[in-house]
Simulated scan of single mutants.
Amino acid sequence: MTDDLGLFADEPGEHRRRRPDPERFRRRKRRRWVTALAGLFVLLLVGGGVGYGAMQIMQIGSYDDYEGGGEGTAVIEVKSGETVSEIGSTMSEKDVVASTRAFISAAAENKQINSIQPGYYMMRKQMSGQAAVERILSADAKVGRVEIRGGMRLEDQLAPNDKKTPGILTMLAEGTCSKDKSNCTSPERMKEVAATADLASLGVPDWAIEGASQAEPDRRLEGLIMPGIYDVKPGAKAEDVLREVISRSVAQMEATGLQQAAESSEHSAYEMLIIGSIVQSEGIEKDFGKVARVIENRLQPPQMRLGMDSTINYPLEKPALLTDPEDRERPGPYNTYLNYGLPPTPISTVSKAALQAVEQPPEGEWKYFVKCRKDGTSCFGKTKAEHDAFVDQAKQNGAW
């Protein structure tokens, strides 16, 4: 038998079967054990990772949690769009709860958790997850929420019954207070900063700085804060509060197309804001467009005085729906019964609807208007005779 492959060759020229090598067999056997052990180790690692991941997904296992209702105070901010997990993480970082899981687990049992609104909440430190959930859902926890409405002014005013109506600056100052009224920025400090701080540092845009800087100090921010709900951080400094509120307001104003509208009109953006404040103060929303057109028509040659009671009322501590002849005869920059043109500053907050009415007023020849119905609706006339007839109608309707 031949061995063409040389499988059995022992010496050159000789052919016989090779004897088994015991040492080689032992080396191969050891390699099998090493390979088997390595594979087992890998399986254990993979299995352990899968098990750990499953525990995380299924929330199996223990987690840290405090006991009781906690102590002291801690302010947390809930931002728009945050999940329960993100809120829990914020609480954990502030030591409100011992762990994010403590809050998540407690929140899973309360369907109201999805009703949490963005803003600031006064919590306690080292609360149990359950206590933290109950606290943040309570009315006492929400702090720093300030609602500013259209037509409001910076300064406080007296109502006809002599009750003081807080102005925007007072409301923002009160928003910095905790529930126990501690760590507040005073209204006096808020007004001082509004009157003296660098306008650009407060977020006033370039297009408004010239007009605002020429105003009386306590009126220079008038109209630059839009209606809306603002969340003020308790303990925040006046500068920070005003910068945040004004910056947000200016962004909303510019989003209406204010600057673009000013470029294609005879007015600057700041003048359009002034007109918008008069529109806001003189009419209800459905009449904003026509009021804006009346103002525009009166400003055109041959120019007429605006004759707006809202501008007469603006500097008064105690405004009234119908101004007194004495007030209308008193000289001053806001007296549009005596002066031609616009007043030097806005006279109130300006809503988006009022701004849009100024940017695109409807066509019309109206030069007069009067509130002729009790719901605030105005009647618009082209001539003085039409206006006088609408005034008589307003008296008959009990709206005058």
Rank of each mutant, 00 (worst) to 15 (best):
T2W: 05
F8G: 14
F8N: 11
E14G: 01
R17P: 14
R19K: 12
P22Y: 04
R26Y: 13
R32K: 10
W33F: 15
V34R: 09
V34W: 15
L43Y: 07
L44Y: 08
G49Q: 06
V50L: 12
M58D: 03
Q59A: 14
G72Q: 09
I76K: 07
E77S: 02
K79A: 08
K79V: 15
V97H: 02
I104R: 01
S105D: 13
A108T: 01
K111G: 09
S115F: 03
I116A: 04
I116P: 06
Q117G: 02
Y121Q: 12
Y121R: 14
M123C: 05
S128K: 05
Q130M: 03
Q130G: 08
E134P: 03
L137V: 09
K142F: 10
I148V: 15
I148F: 08
M152D: 15
L154W: 02
E155C: 00
C177M: 02
S178W: 05
D180T: 06
N183W: 01
N183P: 00
E188N: 04
E192D: 15
A200Y: 01
I209P: 01
G211A: 13
G211C: 05
R220P: 11
L224C: 06
P227E: 04
G228Y: 07
K233M: 15
K237M: 07
D240C: 02
R243I: 03
R243G: 00
E244D: 15
V245E: 02
I246L: 03
Q252L: 13
E254V: 15
A255Y: 01
T256S: 08
G257P: 08
A262Y: 09
A262S: 11
E263S: 13
S264Q: 12
S268W: 03
Y270I: 09
Y270R: 02
E271I: 07
E271R: 06
L273D: 08
I275C: 00
G276F: 04
G276W: 04
E282W: 08
D287Q: 09
F288V: 06
A292W: 05
R293A: 10
I295A: 04
L299E: 03
P302V: 08
R305T: 14
S310Q: 11
L316D: 08
K318N: 08
A320N: 11
L321I: 14
D324M: 12
P325I: 12
R328V: 01
G332V: 12
G332T: 10
P333I: 06
Y337R: 06
L338P: 02
P344N: 10
P346S: 13
V350E: 05
L355K: 08
Q356K: 13
Q356N: 09
P362R: 09
E363Q: 13
K371D: 09
K371C: 14
F390M: 11
V391A: 01
D392R: 12
